[in-house]
């Protein structure tokens, strides 16, 4: 436990020391929220956004940025780099286990997502009148399952990629798909209906987040898909993961 605490402390420092990581995961979505929030038109309800203001409609997609960056970009890259450079192997020659390092990375990912979600909800509420999630339990569930699905996919990438380059080659397209269907690149109201519907089922499940945030309980099928992705990807990753 002592070793795990030390590893977590050091890994957190390293995460914060790399300015790109906190910037892309937490600062970027928050900055976008502020920018759209400051545009007056962004705060007017519109029929095309389901009678919501744009900022409210778009907020779940901002959360997708954090989730995608953390889960399918930073996590697999860090793990693949650590494996390629022999960091994991060196750890396995000491009384500490490389599992502790993996666990520390997951804790940091979860903390990043939690911090970003709290900031987005709080700043949205305090500065731009975005209501707190209407269905709190549903929102928490959608966030937890969406996070689990993306972290599992990130672990799967780290498990199957033999090198850092290979990890990035796999992670980048996955990242683009997650971001696209999450409505980050093109707001979803501009997408054809079919793509919007597909986006409800691709991790992290932007529709479930939107439903719970603005209206009602998320659809069980949306949540079930995220849980299934998390379990399957996580199980395959656990089977295939190598320390060296």
């Amino acid at each position: 436990m002592h070793a795990f605490g030390q590893i977590l402390r050091i890994e957190t420092r390293l995460f914060l020391r790399d300015p790109a990581a906190p910037l892309t995961t937490v600062a970027l979505p928050l900055a976008l929220l502020v920018v759209f929030g400051l545009i007056p038109a962004g705060r007017q309800p519109e029929a095309q956004f389901g009678d919501l203001p744009f900022i409210q409609y778009f907020a779940p997609s901002l959360l997708v940025i954090t989730l995608a960056m953390t889960g399918v970009n930073i996590l697999p890259t860090v793990l693949a780099t650590y494996r390629e450079r022999g960091v994991l192997r060196r750890l396995s020659t000491t009384p500490a286990s490389p599992v502790a390092l993996l666990a520390a990375q997951l804790v940091i990912s979860l903390a990043t997502i939690l911090v970003s979600a709290v900031l987005l909800v709080a700043v949205g509420r305090l500065a731009f009148d975005v209501p707190l999630p209407r269905h709190l339990l549903g929102f928490a569930l959608a966030l937890v399952l969406g996070t689990a699905a993306l972290l599992a996919l990130g672990l799967l990438v780290a498990a199957v990629a033999p090198t850092t380059k290979a990890a990035q080659a796999l992670a980048v397209p996955l990242f683009l798909v997650v971001m696209f269907f999450g409505g980050v690149y093109v707001p979803r109201f501009l997408l054809p209906d079919l793509l919007v519907r597909i986006g409800g089922y691709t991790p992290p499940g932007v529709q479930a987040l939107l439903d719970a945030w603005t209206a009602d309980a998320p659809q069980p099928l949306h949540l079930a898909i995220m849980a299934a992705v998390a379990v399957v990807a996580g199980a395959v990753a656990a089977r295939l993961f190598r320390w060296e």
Binding site: L14, D18, T81, R85, G86, V87, R89, R90, T93
Partner: peptide, 12 residues
Amino acid sequence: VQLQESQLPDRL
């Protein structure tokens, strides 16, 4: 143990 070609994180 000191392993062949075993490195540390850049910023450590």
